[in-house]
Each structure stands twice: as C-alpha cells, then as structure tokens.
C-alpha cells in the first residue's frame, strides 16, 4: 500500500495525474495546492543544481529563460540518483531539441563545455608524476602494444564550431562577429587550485590524447599522430597529461604495467 501511495505521489509531482488527492486528509489547502508546494520545491532544487552546473548557458539565455528550460528538463527527465552533483547530464541534447533556441546554434556545445568543466573539476589530480624514464622499460616489440593513459584530471572536447572563442567572449562579455564554420579541439585540465584550465590543442594532439583516453594501443595510432609521435609524447609527458601506461592484451583489453 505504501508503495502505491508513493507512486501516486510521484505521478502527481510529475504532473501525470492527481490521484494522490484521494489519499489526503481534509486540509485548508486543496490537494492540488498542497502537491504544488512539493512540486515547486522539487523543481526548484533540481533547477538550482542545473544553474550551478551550466553558468555560461544561463548567462547566454538569461535567468528567466534558463528557469523555463530547467523546469521543462526536470519534469521531462527527472533525476535517477540521490546525489545532486550527478544531475544535469544530457542538458546539451535537450537544449538542441528546443526550437526556440535555434538562433543560438552554439548553445548545446557551450552546455557540453560547462558540463565538462564541472566534471573535470571533480576529478583527482594524480599524486605521482609520470616521466619519460618510466617508458624506458618498454622494448621495441612491446611498443605497438603499449597503451598510454590520459591523466584523470583532464578531459577532451571536440566541437564543430569555434567553441573556445565563443566561450571566452561570453566570459569576458565581448560579443563579436564569429564565423561558425570552424572546428575546435579543447583540452580541459584541473589545476592544483581547483580551477579548470581550458586550452585549444591541434587536431593531431587531440587525436593522440583521445587515443590515450580510449585506452587504445600505440600500434593503432592514426598515421598523422604516428608521424609526430615523438613531439606529441614529449609534450604530453612534459605537461603531465599521461598518468601511466599498460599493455593491451590480445583481445584488446589492457593491463597496468606502471602505476
């Protein structure tokens, strides 16, 4: 019985029906008015979480329209975990589907960048440093089977618009004409002061780091990355972008060789 009552309550919160009214004792408020208070609290708490995660989106669309979008997102998708820090994934896709936002074609990618910034800020910074000396134990035969692992305090984001430029403009309130037909490759790195550094990297460097993030062996590197392997590897190690390496097993998995 309790389960059914909670389901009826949830359906009322989701605005699917108001059958919970039959369960409520007489009160000065109607069932609808009582439920509305709980619904307001529920929508408000999740909307505030979205606002904290997507500050750049909110700055672009304004507080009122953001609240409108957040409410629609909350009611459509809800939340499937008790931890509010994990709420909001997929908001970029939701925004993309909003016809009213067609005039801001860059907004979904801005949302994705906001999401990456928050996720990156929550990652651990490796306590040990990885150096070129750590690679010296790898034999020539093992090299193609070696997997370099992207350090966990970094993430990558590719965009088919000049996302970095637009993001910087929004941050500095400098609106200028931008040619949207440019691709961007972005690397995010959490700093020791908990801020997240955002930088553009070349398409080749991005492909190399993405290869590492995906746990693929060096033998499967794209040709343009292989051609620049030495500087790419040197740069990645110098900037602590690699946390460790492992060897891929014959079935494509990898096992750690150095942590």
């Amino acid at each position: 019985m309790l389960k059914q009552l909670q389901l009826r309550f949830a359906e009322s919160l989701n605005r699917e029906n108001n059958l919970i009214g039959n369960d409520l004792a007489a009160n000065a408020l109607s069932a609808e008015e009582s439920i509305q208070i709980y619904q307001n609290n529920y929508v408000l708490s999740l909307s505030e979480a979205l606002s904290a995660t997507y500050p750049t989106v909110e700055k672009l669309v304004g507080e009122d329209y953001f609240k409108h979008c957040a409410k629609a997102f909350v009611l459509q998708y809800g939340h499937n975990q008790g931890d509010l820090n994990l709420f909001g994934e997929g908001f970029n896709t939701f925004l993309q589907a909003q016809e009213a936002l067609n005039a801001l074609p860059y907004l979904p990618d801005i949302a994705l960048l906001d999401w990456h910034i928050e996720q990156t800020a929550g990652q651990a910074i490796p306590t040990s440093t990885f150096s070129i000396a750590d690679l010296q134990s790898i034999t020539a035969e093992q090299l193609g089977n070696t997997v370099l692992h992207l350090a966990p305090h970094q993430s990558l984001l590719a965009s088919e618009i000049p996302l970095f430029t637009i993001y910087q403009m929004v941050q500095h309130d400098q609106v200028e004409q931008v040619e949207l037909e440019q691709h961007d490759h972005i690397l995010l790195t959490k700093q020791a002061n908990f801020e997240v550094q955002i930088e553009q990297v070349s398409a080749t460097a991005f492909a190399f780091l993405k290869h590492s993030q995906q746990g693929l062996p060096l033998g499967q590197l794209p040709a343009d990355c292989l051609a620049e392997l030495e500087p790419l590897l040197g740069d990645a190690i110098q900037h602590q972008r690699i946390s460790h390496f492992s060897f891929a097993s014959p079935i494509g998995e990898s096992h750690d060789a150095n942590l």
């Binding site: 389960k3 389901l7 949830a10 609290n41 529920y42 999740l46 939340h79 008790g82």
Partner: peptide
C-alpha cells in the same frame, strides 16, 4: 525516491 526516480525534496 520511488522506482529509482529521485525528487530531491
């Protein structure tokens, strides 16, 4: 929460 959906209230 009910049926895996959380209402954060």
């Amino acid at each position: 929460s009910v049926n895996g959906r959380y209402y954060n209230d």
